[in-house]
Amino acid sequence: MTRESGMIYALCFVLFMVGLYCVVVKKNLVKIVLGLAIMEYAVNLFLILIGYRKDGIAPIIDGATDAKTFAAASVDPLPQALVLTSIVIGLGVLTLMVALCIRLYERYGTFDITQIRRLRG
């Protein structure tokens, strides 16, 4: 691993931590949702970086190229498929979260989690 690529992975991790910080510390429901989204995207970015190769070619193989040289030159397509799936799942979760936020606002009249605490003990 070269120095630059290590740097990118580290930045990915920082982004993940920013999201986690947001989820743990913020008091506003919408900000918590945003924090979760940031965490999700950090992991997606990490997955894409795993498959990335500098000056790589698109992972489409035709009969002319042989598998060995192709594998050495192309980017890894699998993480891209994984990220697509994880984006779809993220969309589902995000939708549900936003719907819940709206419902909570209807019931409690606030987005502040310190005031939404009926359940305790």
Binding site: F16, L82, V93, M97
Partner: peptide, 26 residues
Amino acid sequence: HDELEASFKYLVLGSVASTFILLGVA
């Protein structure tokens, strides 16, 4: 009131857990 609050709490912690699992997979 209670159901929504519980669901949101569960949703947030569950999503954090899922993100960690996805990170583990990655």
